[in-house]
Structure formats: C-alpha cells, structure tokens
C-alpha cells in the first residue's frame, strides 16, 4: 500500500514538465496546489494533530473522488492525524488540510474533537504517567 502510494505521489507531483492543469483524466498529473484549485486557507481549525476518520458515508462518495481524496479515505479508515495523512500522502500540510476540509464538507470524514471531560491538569497528569511508563 505504501509502495503504491509512493508511486502515485511520485507520478507527476515533482515532474517539472507538468503544466499543473491537466487534471481531467486520472487527476494524478497535477501539482499540489492544482489539487485544491489554489485554495490554501480553509480548514485552519484542523490542527496538525487532529484525528481524521472516514465516516460511514465515505463509501457512498468514494467513486466520485480523485485519487488524492480517495487515498485520504483509504488512510483514515482508522483515525489518523492530519500531519500523518500529509506525510503518507506525500503532499504538503496546507494542501492536505484543504482536501480533508472538502471531505468534511461532503460528510465523508469526521474530525475528532476531544470531549472536554477532564481538566487540563488531569490530562497532563495522565500524560506524565504515560511518559514515565515508556
């Protein structure tokens, strides 16, 4: 799966002969910012560490997505941080955030928002116990 991803990501993103606008057929042969239509400032409330997960509705939309969105859905079958999606997709953070924000809009993924069921102090205490046990 990772090999496949590398192949996809390397299949045009770094190709200097690419004009960045041929996105009709496979959608692969485009530059990162062409993937997002130049939008880079949406979804800024999705943090680097925010957990992204495919929703039940994802499979219904899957056929309609281009490869990069489909790859995101594949990666986030279990929750994965935005930054890890970016790294595994080999696409810059800002671009990944836009793709994820679009998927959120479609209802295909959810961003986990931790419930505030505990104080920050008690969270830090748990973290401290956790690192001590490493």
């Amino acid at each position: 799966m990772i090999d496949d991803l590398d192949q996809l990501a390397g299949n045009g993103l770094d190709d200097p002969s690419d004009d960045g606008f041929d996105e009709d057929s496979t959608g692969r042969f485009i530059r990162p910012y062409a993937m997002t239509g130049g939008r880079t400032e949406v979804g800024t409330d999705i943090h680097l560490e925010s957990q992204i997960q495919a929703s039940a509705r994802a499979s219904a939309h899957l056929g309609a997505y281009r490869w990069e969105a489909a790859r995101v859905l594949d990666l986030v079958q279990s929750p994965m941080a935005l930054v890890e999606v970016s790294a595994r997709l080999d696409v810059p953070i800002g671009v990944t955030r836009v793709i994820v924000a679009d998927l959120v809009k479609d209802g295909s993924v959810i961003v986990h928002v931790p419930e505030q069921t505990q104080s920050f102090t008690s969270l830090l205490e748990k973290v401290l116990d956790g690192v001590r046990n490493l």
Binding site: A54, S55, A56, A58, A81, P114, L123, V127
Partner: peptide, 18 residues
C-alpha cells in the same frame, strides 16, 4: 459498508492527541 463504521459522522471515541 455502511454498517461497518459506527461513527456515522459523529466523534464517538474520545481520542486525545497531545
């Protein structure tokens, strides 16, 4: 696969990234 993912658009588990 509609039943394979019970989250159905809501954050079910309380995963906390730090």
């Amino acid at each position: 696969f509609a039943t394979s993912d019970p989250t159905a658009g809501t954050a079910r588990r309380n995963k906390i990234p730090v």
